[in-house]
Design a binder for these strands. Structure first.
Length: 476
DNA sequence: AAAAAAT
């Protein structure tokens, strides 16, 4: 990493910045975040992951970035969790900026963007744990996530970090048929932290099983998706309205790696209109969102069939040598087809998508996490947030496109997918399989959007070319 | 198109 990544370089005050702050500009303070350049910190979070973070804070609450966790007045038990269980030594850059904003009264809301693999989860989990009153046996912190897999993953982080705190927690997930009990029969939730999917959380609230009057902090993980995507949006807004009714001062945290300008404006408006508290913002320019540690490639192919051939003849062998691989496909159907084809050729792959039984989904993820499987085919179910450090190869079997206009790329999903590789600054590679002019056009648009050129693998039939690519990515 | 939810 070049040194100037650490200088807190301040981008020109762009339209982006002023557009975002809907507060009168006089009261908006634009902070450049200058962090003490402690290069020799052995933090498991990589400090170069968020080089330029811009923050907008309305009003006059001053925030000083935290260089050490001790500055955040955390409980001894929580500090122990951070040091002993998580292995942290000092706050990563995103933590040092966001944690003071989260933990300083009057507990303003926060819209926070940070790169993939930079440790957003640890930020909001720490926020939830530190704001819970251990003496009160009632729901005080609630976290909403788009998928079952993300709920489970976030809960694992919470349990680890909160190991010594005695804070109680529960997952709000649909249970499989075998263990089904009607909501009305279920006992009221007394756990202090709840992490769940929107459907189940709404159901619990509607059935008066989840009280919202003691909630101090509400987190939306993958917030751009949760608040802007139809289906999720309605559920999320319903949850917020219910909470604001009983806890109008509840702090709202919105976290994601992506907030495009439209969504950013929309999301700010919702938070502003529903909650009394002002909000702080933290964001990264889109040109800076591509991870330096992940090298992207494109492979041009003559027809759809050759995609399977490339996976079979090139990717599968290389994947085995390199680490773990996720192959993203657009539909469940093509997931199944690719799966069948590879199995027929004698390869070991597993496939995950939303229509599988919940227990199967859990099992497939578990096996992948344990390293029992090396190649996982997935729909966009796992595009966001899935954190498996051994994944260093991502294949876009299909490019991510907008659903009602398939000639337009879904830039956000693209970024999330490639972010499954290169967790916390690790090296990674991405192969985009392109077939025809349309794919090339979409790829070009993605490159333009992020202002990031993607190298072409010269020949899809050449073993050497693929090896060369992985060498270039630092994987061989 | 995919995701979440349960009937």
């Amino acid at each position: 990493m070049a040194d100037d990544d650490f200088t807190g370089k301040w981008p020109e005050e762009s339209d982006d910045v002023t557009e975002m702050s809907e507060e009168p500009s006089v009261s908006s303070i634009l902070h450049s975040v200058a962090i003490d350049d402690s290069r020799n910190v052995n933090n498991s979070l990589d400090d170069h992951a968020d080089s330029n973070i811009q923050t907008v804070t309305p009003g006059d609450t001053p925030y000083t970035s935290a260089v050490r966790f001790e500055q955040l007045s955390l409980s001894h038990e929580l500090l122990r969790g951070l040091y002993v269980e998580m292995g942290f030594e000092r706050p990563s850059k995103i933590q040092s900026v966001s944690l003071p904003m989260i933990l300083t009264p009057p507990y303003k809301n926060l819209i926070a963007q940070a790169k993939n693999g930079s440790g957003k989860t640890t930020c909001f989990v720490l926020g939830m744990l530190s704001r819970v009153d251990p003496k009160l046996d009632a729901p005080q912190a609630l976290c909403i996530c788009p998928t079952r897999e993300l709920v489970i993953q976030n809960m694992e982080v919470l349990l680890k970090m909160g190991k010594y705190t005695g804070v109680t927690s529960e997952m709000g997930l649909a249970v499989d048929k075998a263990n089904y009990i009607p909501v009305s029969k279920r006992a009221p939730v007394t756990a202090q932290v709840i992490i769940g999917t929107p459907g189940t959380i709404n159901k619990w609230i509607a059935a008066k099983k989840l009280g919202t009057s003691n909630l101090k902090i509400l987190v939306f993980d993958e917030a751009d998706h949760m608040l802007a995507e139809s289906g999720f949006k309605e559920d999320s807004v319903r949850i917020m309205k219910e909470i604001v009714k009983w806890s109008p001062r509840c702090q709202v945290l919105l976290f994601s790696a992506t907030f495009n300008d439209t969504v950013k404006a929309f999301v700010s408006k919702i938070v502003k209109s529903l909650f009394v508290q002002e909000y702080n913002q933290m964001f990264v320019m889109k040109e800076e969102l591509s991870l330096d540690s992940v090298t992207q490639f494109k492979v041009n192919l003559p027809n759809e069939l050759s995609k399977i051939m490339v996976i079979k003849d090139k990717i599968m062998d290389l994947a085995e040598k390199v680490g773990q691989t996720i192959i993203f496909v657009r539909t469940k159907k093509s997931a199944g087809m690719l799966h069948e084809a590879l199995v027929k050729y004698g390869y070991q792959v597993t496939t995950i998508h939303g229509t599988l039984a919940r227990e199967d989904r859990d099992k497939i993820v578990k096996e992948f996490r344990e390293g029992l499987t090396h190649v996982l085919i997935s729909t966009d179910l796992l595009a966001r947030g899935f954190d498996q450090s051994k994944v260093n190869l991502v294949v876009n079997y299909d490019l991510p496109v907008i659903h009602d206009n398939t000639s337009e790329p879904d830039n956000e999903v693209y970024l999330h997918r490639i972010g499954r590789a290169g967790r916390f600054g690790r090296k990674g590679a991405v192969f985009n399989l392109l077939c025809g002019d349309k794919d090339n056009m979409i790829m070009k648009k993605i490159e333009t959007y992020f202002k990031h050129y993607v190298t072409e693998v010269p020949s899809f039939t050449s073993d050497e070319d693929f090896k060369e690519a992985l060498k270039k990515a630092g994987l061989m």
